[in-house]
Design a protein around this nucleic acid. Structure first.
Length: 655
DNA sequence: CTTAGGG
DNA sequence: CCCTAAG
């Protein structure tokens, strides 16, 4: 699945013993054997099997490696401080520096990218390896460490103080062994411990002599402030004005350790250890100082962070390689590994945090915007009443605007005003204007009570009708309201485009064009074969609407839906006469079901389940229905003893 | 177009 | 809600 870079260490025969190692070696091509350290590209199959990497894969990695090497060179050249040089001498040291430098100075971006990829691969591999029998322990180990990272870290720190920074070369071998060891350890602790003890000690003994920590530490200690500054500069790629020797030392040490981690790929664990050690050492010597100084050095800290992250990337890469290594055991190693993991973990967040956090933030913001508020509660009468009017009023305008939007094809809502006016011919504009005025009227009018509202609405609607010349009404109403959308060629419906979301409303604020937020009603129109658009989602009828409907029916009589539409639903572009009719039908049904119908419907059962609609209204509906059905106007009053009288009364109340 | 009714 | 038929 994933391509992994593996480092195979041929130098130490003992390391090869491990099954893991063998597998890797088996995979490795023969030529690799010659080199002490071999980077292998392998693919981890789903079953955990390691498969030799393809040429392409190798190439990919190869580039990276090359890049690193070049980086190393650069670093070496750039490296000015004695310390650096000394470190560089050791192969491991070189790597370290390189990583560090690369991250700090050179193409952080590129490195990071590569590192990320590598890291990903590595992670994947680890995951996979868990599944595979051979690597299962590894996985566990890594996971465990990861999970417990913090704790382990602390543990490691305390436990690993003795460790010193070995030369990178040694560390490489060592690392491999360590890693494998750690893995092994997990599976079989006892063995691992023993083994680790021997191997680890041996390695250590060998390594220590080389450079080891003493080098770093001593060197740092011996360095003058100026030298430290230089070193700092080399390390971080920038000057520092800090005069605190301890702080400088600490910084440098940390950076070195970090770099080690990174570069140490294989050594990561070890590096971690080392790092830890450094920290400890530094802490022992300068911890107090560092703490104090750290407060002042935010800037410096930041830089460090950066560096560390960069380094991390390198480290990750290395880690990746390491992961492949076979199992050697070392108690310490395990600790190291855990430590490494921990370090990894810690750092990683750092890196990603920034990116992701920013992303998240942006996302969060967006969601908010995108989230539509649909405060419409049918159940709540008062609220709806207040809200609805406004919304409704605009809805018409909105509709127009929507259409325009749809034209654009984008969901974005353009301020209705601009759209409407632009797109629409004068006539339309006029009609719109009228609508607006009407809407405005509605808006301002605050109707606390449903009745009031209904009354007012009625008035308005009637007013509008009467006020405006028939011409205007006619033109705007029938053509535009009803089918206009579908009929209106062009732009509005974009039949061709396909399902377009028409966001109708601009909500209460028509002024605020920007708020596209999905409004309560997102009406999705679906292109019909005919080319017409049809609403896809049902728009819940609001109480206000129902009231208006009832009112309209009482006023105009059932069946005169177009009239009612015109009078009472002028502002509701989305309610067609057919809708009204349908709704009325439903209301009738409901009313009869709900109320003990004295008249035709003998069912007295009440359905409480469905009663968002106030009984009052249903009652009235029923009355109206009865009235209608009973037709004879004269007769109605007498006939509908219970209903007739009440009907009138209700009606008067409403009206 | 508008209604009415079925799906 | 949508679709369709009938007036």
């Amino acid at each position: 699945m994933e391509t992994v870079v593996g480092i195979e260490d041929n130098d130490d025969g003992k390391f090869e013993d491990s099954g893991v190692d063998r597998s890797s070696s088996a995979l490795s091509s023969p030529k690799q054997i010659a080199n002490p350290i071999v980077y292998k590209l392998v693919r981890v199959e789903g079953d955990g099997r390691l498969v030799p990497a393809t040429d392409d894969e190798v190439m990919e990695v190869g580039d990276f490696l090359e890049y690193e090497n070049s980086e190393m060179h650069v670093v070496a050249n750039t490296g000015q401080s004695l310390e650096c040089i000394s470190i560089e001498r050791s192969s491991s040291g070189k790597l370290r520096l390189e990583c560090k430098e690369g991250t700090a100075e050179a193409d952080l971006g590129e490195l990071n990218a590569k590192l990320q990829i590598l890291q990903k691969v590595k992670e994947e591999k680890q995951r996979i390896s868990c599944g595979s029998p051979a690597h299962s322990h590894v996985n566990i180990d890594s996971q465990c460490s990861a999970d417990k990272f913090p704790v382990i870290d602390g543990k490691v720190q305390s436990e690993t103080p003795c460790q010193e920074i070995p030369s990178i070369a040694s560390s490489l071998n060592y690392t491999h062994s360590n890693q494998s060891g750690s893995i092994d350890q997990c599976s079989r602790p006892s063995e691992g411990v023993i083994e680790s003890g021997s191997s680890a000690s041996a390695v250590y003994s060998n390594l220590k002599p080389d450079l080891s920590m003493s080098d770093g530490e001593i060197c740092l200690d011996k360095l003058s402030i100026r030298e430290l500054h230089e070193l700092f500069k080399v390390t971080f790629g920038r000057e520092t004005t800090v005069k605190d020797k301890q702080w400088l030392k600490r910084r440098i040490a940390m950076s070195l350790t970090n770099s080690c981690d990174v570069s140490a790929t294989t050594f990561i664990i070890k590096n971690n250890k080392i790092v830890r050690k450094f920290e400890e050492e530094s802490s022992g010597n300068m911890n107090a100082g560092s703490l104090i100084s750290s407060g002042n050095m935010t800037e410096e800290e930041d830089v460090n962070f950066k560096d560390s992250s960069a380094v991390n990337a390198c480290g990750i890469e290395d880690n990746q390689v390491v992961s492949e290594t076979r199992p050697e055991i070392g108690l310490e190693d395990e600790n190291y590994q855990t430590g490494q993991r921990a370090a990894k973990r810690i750092r990683r967040p750092t890196k990603r945090y920034i990116e992701e956090l920013s992303e998240n933030e942006s996302r969060e913001h967006n969601p908010r915007l995108s989230i539509s508020n649909k405060p419409m509660g049918l159940g709540h009468v008062s609220p709806t009443l207040n809200v609805r009017p406004a919304r409704n009023a605009f809805s018409e305008v909105r509709t127009y605007g929507t259409r325009l939007d749809s034209l654009g094809g984008s969901d974005v809502q353009i301020p209705c005003v601009s759209r409407v006016r632009r797109s629409r011919p004068r006539k339309d504009i006029a009609s719109l204007m009228v609508c607006d005025t009407v809407n405005c009227k509605f808006h301002p009018t605050s109707m606390g009570e449903a009745e009031k509202l209904s009354n007012k609405l009625l008035e308005h609607s009637s007013d509008a009708g009467s006020e405006f010349p028939d011409k205007v009404l006619k033109s705007r109403m029938p053509s535009k309201f009803h089918q206009p959308s579908s009929s209106e060629p062009v732009k509005e419906q974009c039949p061709v485009i396909g399902p377009v979301e028409l966001r109708q409303e601009l909500r209460p604020k028509r002024a605020d064009p920007s708020s596209h937020t999905s409004d309560d009603n997102n009406i999705v129109t679906v292109p019909t074969a005919k080319g017409g658009m049809r609403r896809k989602h049902h728009r819940a009828w609001t109480l206000v609407e129902v009231i208006k409907l009832v009112e309209g029916v009482s006023r105009c009589g059932a069946g005169r839906w177009s009239e009612i539409k015109r009078l009472s639903f002028a502002s509701y572009s989305y309610r067609t006469s057919v809708d009204l009719k349908d709704k009325w039908r439903n209301l009738l049904k409901a009313s009869f079901a709900l109320t003990p119908a004295p008249a035709d419907e003998g069912i007295n059962l009440r359905k409480h389940g469905t009663a968002p609609i106030p009984e009052k209204i249903l009652l009235r509906v029923r009355e109206l229905a009865e009235m209608n059905s009973q037709v004879p106007p004269n007769y109605s009053s007498s006939q509908l003893a219970s209903g007739g009288g009440s009907v009138h009364g209700d009606r008067s109340g409403y009206l």
